[in-house]
Design a protein around this nucleic acid. Structure first.
Lengths: 229, 229
DNA sequence: TCGGCGGATACATCTGATGTCTTCTTACTC
DNA sequence: GAGTAAGAAGACATCAGATGTATCCGCCGA
């Protein structure tokens, strides 16, 4: 195992064992390198990797800190995997996304708050307005779509699920998806499906919310796969 | 954005755009550093991070190669997140694991091959033998458990799902889980649940397989949470 | 034809120096 | 006495060069 790997595993282990807690500041490079028995260069390679993974966060002139180890942040590197896998055939990625989001809808139906429902409703109403205008702000429509799904995920009560959904239905994926289905009526159909999901959530009906979400995502997948034969 | 981040994003982009393909060898450090306008040290920090993420693979004396970008390998860093999240309250992690594995069982029921069924059966038979012996080889029981679930995942036909399951139900999680539930009859009950799953798979009955798997994992979760109140 | 031996190449690691940013202290001004 | 700005100190960022070590490959002899 390389020195760099040793650095990474040592720091990971120390975090897992509680030697470093979220928000803690790591020893300065010189000291940490010395205590691990490696040069500053090797230490920096390890720190760099941990920084990419979202485990630590370095600030020039200040120091290196353990992040709050938020699941969403730690799952962010997944985005690259999703992008990579979704380059050609995105079916597998979308199958997983559908699984995750359907469960999210089911869970959210039982826990979503009135204020979150109102917030989601406001988004959908804004989409209604935009679609009645002549030059449609498509980017804003995409943004509303992301926000709507994000509100649902946020009310599942499961942060791990939230992180995964964010990675699997994040900006890159969604953007590419939407731009690829500029077909006639896609915006309007999607909007109506969102309304159906909202109604199920407002009724706090888990099974109905799950089915509405499944129907919505299957529609998206079919648009992606091409016109039905 | 730091030089290191630039290096990482540049290489990621080149891979996404197809400039580097799986198995390709990257230019030597000196040349690549020069073409990206950074020093060798900064380049190495970036390469190191990509190596941790499973995107590239460096071999001393030879060169740096793009990996085959296998989903399982790219999802491996997730293991740390799962470990971290599962330290205290593992409920959320297990809820996601249950979701993933239930879907895997459902999918596998329709696609699993006879040889895979035979392989799974052989594992279960071995477990039967072990449990009838006096000094039970508990480690082997754990190993069989992992293999059994892995066979199911492998026959979903969805590599992304396989990778996620591997991360969420991998060695570390399972090991800790099993060692924590040394309660009376846990081995035997788990074994019988495995048999029920196997029967549903052999019957190629998706819904039954899903339910059997759900039942199995709920049992595991309850053992973990402590005796039912 | 086969096998061992170097040489060339490439990554691994270390060391030291310099640049740049943040923070804290300190002194000055009002 | 309070507020502010300059400066000093500390810490990461980056670079450059040198040395160590593993791998590959061609050469040469048996």
């Amino acid at each position: 195992m390389s020195r760099t790997d040793e650095v990474i595993n040592s720091i990971k282990r120390m975090i897992l064992e509680g030697a470093f807690r979220p928000g803690d500041r790591l020893p300065v490079e010189k000291d940490l390198a010395e205590s691990l028995g490696v040069s500053r260069g090797s230490l920096r390679e390890g720190i760099s990797a941990l920084s990419i993974l979202g485990v630590v966060n370095t600030r020039q002139g200040d120091g290196t800190y353990v992040t709050d180890l938020d699941v969403g942040q730690l799952l962010a590197p997944l985005g690259f995997v999703v992008d990579l896998e979704g380059r050609g055939d995105a079916r597998h990625v979308h199958a997983v996304r559908r699984l995750l989001e359907c469960e999210a809808a089911r869970l959210a139906a039982g826990r979503i708050t009135d204020s979150a429902l109102a917030e989601a409703r406001a988004l959908l109403d804004e989409a209604t307005r935009i679609m009645s205008q002549a030059p449609q702000d498509h980017e804003r429509i995409i943004e509303i779509d992301i926000q709507f799904h994000r509100i649902i995920a946020a009310h599942t009560g499961n942060p791990v699920l939230v992180g995964l959904i964010e990675a699997f239905a994040g900006r890159t994926v969604r953007g590419r998806l939407w731009r690829s289905l500029h077909e006639e009526g896609a915006d309007r159909r999607t909007h109506e499906e969102h309304l159906a999901i909202w109604k199920a959530l407002a009724a706090h009906d888990p099974e109905r919310a799950r089915i509405r979400m499944a129907n919505h995502l299957i529609g998206v997948e079919e648009s992606l796969a091409g016109p039905p034969s």
